[in-house]
């Protein structure tokens, strides 16, 4: 009789652990999905802003056709890849980021354009959208790290293996400029 109770007790503990681990994994997976949706919203916002920006800049007879075309091209490539895998997308989006950064540097040489209210508003939106993309990426990567840890570490990896939880992909930055950004130190 006692042995039966012990077995039942162990079984109950196992079931409770299983439920807890499973729910934890589901929660983390949903968090990564939600974080990914946030990135997606901001990337779409950037696609919408770029035609406006290009039009405004063109209005000022800027002799930087190549830079402008590079931005438009990168935008179209990125938009077409919007249902591709995380790794593929992070590559094309990074290219768009660097094309945009080049344009904003070039624009510095045109004081008329920089005084235009419309352009200033666009610039604020674009700067902020870039920030939001990198913050969303940051949050997404943190969430993926936590989720991956849960799926790979013992004992929750057993539950993950049984119920088919797979590790997520990080949204990596592949642009060389962004990687090589100077490291700031405070002492």
């Amino acid at each position: 009789m006692i042995i039966l109770y012990i077995i039942l007790g162990i079984l109950a503990i196992l079931v409770i652990f299983f439920i807890g681990a499973y729910n934890g994994l589901v929660g983390l997976r949903n968090q990564t999905k939600n974080a990914w949706a946030q990135i997606d919203v901001q990337l779409k916002r950037r696609y919408d802003l770029i035609p406006n920006l290009v039009e405004t800049v063109k209005g000022y007879q800027i002799h930087e056709r190549e830079t402008l075309e590079a931005v438009t091209r990168a935008r179209n490539v990125a938009q077409q890849a919007s249902s591709a895998s995380v790794a593929e997308r992070s590559k094309v989006e990074a290219e768009l980021s660097s094309a945009l950064a080049r344009l904003l540097v070039v624009v510095e040489a045109y004081p008329d354009l920089k005084a235009n209210q419309n352009f200033l508003a666009l610039q604020e939106e674009l700067t902020s959208t870039e920030n939001k993309i990198s913050f969303a990426r940051q949050y997404y990567n943190d969430s993926v790290l936590k989720y991956n840890n849960q799926t790979q570490m013992f004992p929750s990896n057993i539950v993950a293996g049984m119920t088919g939880f797979k590790s997520g992909d990080f949204f990596e930055v592949t642009v060389t400029e962004e990687r090589a950004a100077p490291k700031v130190k405070f002492n």
Binding site: Q38, N131, F135, Y139, S143
Partner: peptide, 12 residues
Amino acid sequence: YNIVEEMKIASG
């Protein structure tokens, strides 16, 4: 508004 939204996104 943008800065608040940035922090909202960063904090999840």
